[in-house]
Design a protein around this nucleic acid. Sequence first.
DNA 1: CCTGGCACTCGGGCAGGGCGAGTGCCAAAA
DNA 2: TTTTGGCACTCGCCCTGCCCGAGTGCCAGG
Lengths: 339, 339
Amino acid sequence: MLSERRLEVLRAIVQDYVGTEEPVGSKALTERHRLGVSPATVRNDMAVLEEEGYIAQPHTSAGRIPTDKGYRLFVDRLAGVKPLSTPERRAIHNFLDGAVDLDDVVGRTVRLLAQLTRQVAVVQYPSLTRSSIRHVELLALTPARLMLVLITDTGRVEQRVIDCPAPFGETSLADLRARLNGRVGGRRFADVPQLVQDLPESFEEPEERATVSAVIATLLETLVEEHEERLMIGGTANLTRFGHDFPLTIRPVLEALEEQVVLLKLLGEVKESGMTVRIGHENAYEGLNSTSVVSVGYGSGGEAVAKLGVVGPTRMDYPGTMGAVRAVARYVGQILAES
Amino acid sequence: MLSERRLEVLRAIVQDYVGTEEPVGSKALTERHRLGVSPATVRNDMAVLEEEGYIAQPHTSAGRIPTDKGYRLFVDRLAGVKPLSTPERRAIHNFLDGAVDLDDVVGRTVRLLAQLTRQVAVVQYPSLTRSSIRHVELLALTPARLMLVLITDTGRVEQRVIDCPAPFGETSLADLRARLNGRVGGRRFADVPQLVQDLPESFEEPEERATVSAVIATLLETLVEEHEERLMIGGTANLTRFGHDFPLTIRPVLEALEEQVVLLKLLGEVKESGMTVRIGHENAYEGLNSTSVVSVGYGSGGEAVAKLGVVGPTRMDYPGTMGAVRAVARYVGQILAES
DNA sequence: CCTGGCACTCGGGCAGGGCGAGTGCCAAAA
DNA sequence: TTTTGGCACTCGCCCTGCCCGAGTGCCAGG
């Protein structure tokens, strides 16, 4: 168990290193933080902290820098979440209030987060599976080709083209459309399958049944297709503030950011409620081994329908970043609930 | 006027420099290209080319590198468009054929282009203004709130929420929906305004008229909103292959890529038909002064509905890049025409 | 347990020197 | 007139050695 003062020293090291980007030595520490002890004492504490794996020296006779474990302790026990300033809050509101549709909300959110945190922002579109259906629209492109448009309560729109086994009359179409909406309108995705399974049987003509089956199959498929989860990223220019040894640092991060799968998994691991901070090697994907990810769920009402977060160097301002992420997530949730 | 051989020398310089990324000297040139003359002769030619501004030396007693003007000449007169290899073509087809909807097409195109050219790819979504309307859908969210969904022949979907001045009955809604589609279905955007301007008058109730006017206003607004032109970018990880003096090179490019406005303008300047190559300082935006942009329009049928291109270092393989861009644009056009 | 002192380590920055690629010019050859 | 080989020169790059200072670990005394 570390003494109170040792924790204080660790906190000071983290803060200074985040600020200066340079290894911090015992003398500088005592000068900048009124710890009330001499450099020599701090040195002893540092030796212990290093022994325990919370800090390390890049090379002998340099200052110390926090390890992933050190940041972890800092985040868990030493740092709170810094609430945003009033002007920052106002900025969030102003920026987000002008959004006209879902794309716009997500786009603005990404830019906002990137700007506030000066890091890379990632925002997932509200997921299909946790939303409910606002409306289903069916229209004939040609007699043998239908288009299915699905509108969710979060404003998301999905479309699919369906090739009909047999031509489908306009009246039958209207009929189907009405029945479909009657059954699934306003229902949650999870409930849909059992609500529509007997629909084909209620049509008399065998050809009609075939088409209805095809439509329903497509609908269910669309609901399930998790892989369609989209996301938007922004603020990549902030990566250039990362470090000085660019190619090696920045490259894998950019690559990771292009792999939707990786990113989705990253966000997907977020616990249902509350914020998650993954530090350095805690990230499964090795390209992100020298970055930290701060993420949180957001949603209309109490439940999270998607996630958002930022990706930055392990050496980041955790309290500030966490504050910004949380504030933005909350407000986006409100916006979605209103619309 | 430059002699044939001098042009040949310029071509050789461009090719070698693109390959090696290093200034190329007279001796190396004669060794790698059977020019049939001695290094001394080449030196004389180089002196002339430098005088004319086609090449430059980074510092005294180094080899030469092409200037923007040199690349320009190379692209205009010395290089053709390199057709893709059969496997490459096949790759394009395989990759693009699996797309399920417009988002998917655009997403795949971006990844494909980035991979083929090993540069940053930019693809604009098919523009609204040049498409025609496939269908307009109107549905009531609440009695006093409508949602307008617009589906274009390129598969794009736009949605808007409308607050009604007065409640609007379900039958009136069906009526309006039918009339609207009857008038504008299948018509080009440009023709829409005059087709709907008298619609409100055909309704009797004053409240209904007000609502119909609101709907039509929203519709027209949606059609006009050019700023809604969206685009997708990919392959940013390729930027890390740019140069060695990262922060200065890469930063402004990443910033430019995040500015939709800048990018749209960039693509927007493309001439209607044919490919455009903007080299270095030919780009208005100064962050892109050391990059080149190769772009071309694409579309279903003969007409371009949007543009796509790649952004890379001025030192790029122009023939290959141009070949890839052209091939991809053509095939995307086909895909859109089919769907 | 804290503190001041002291010897030691090691990375970063700076200066100097050799190396080599590449140039420009010139006089001779084609 | 153009091409060629020769030659002296320039200048950036890289390697080396050096010094400096920040920072450490240890120890003896408070």
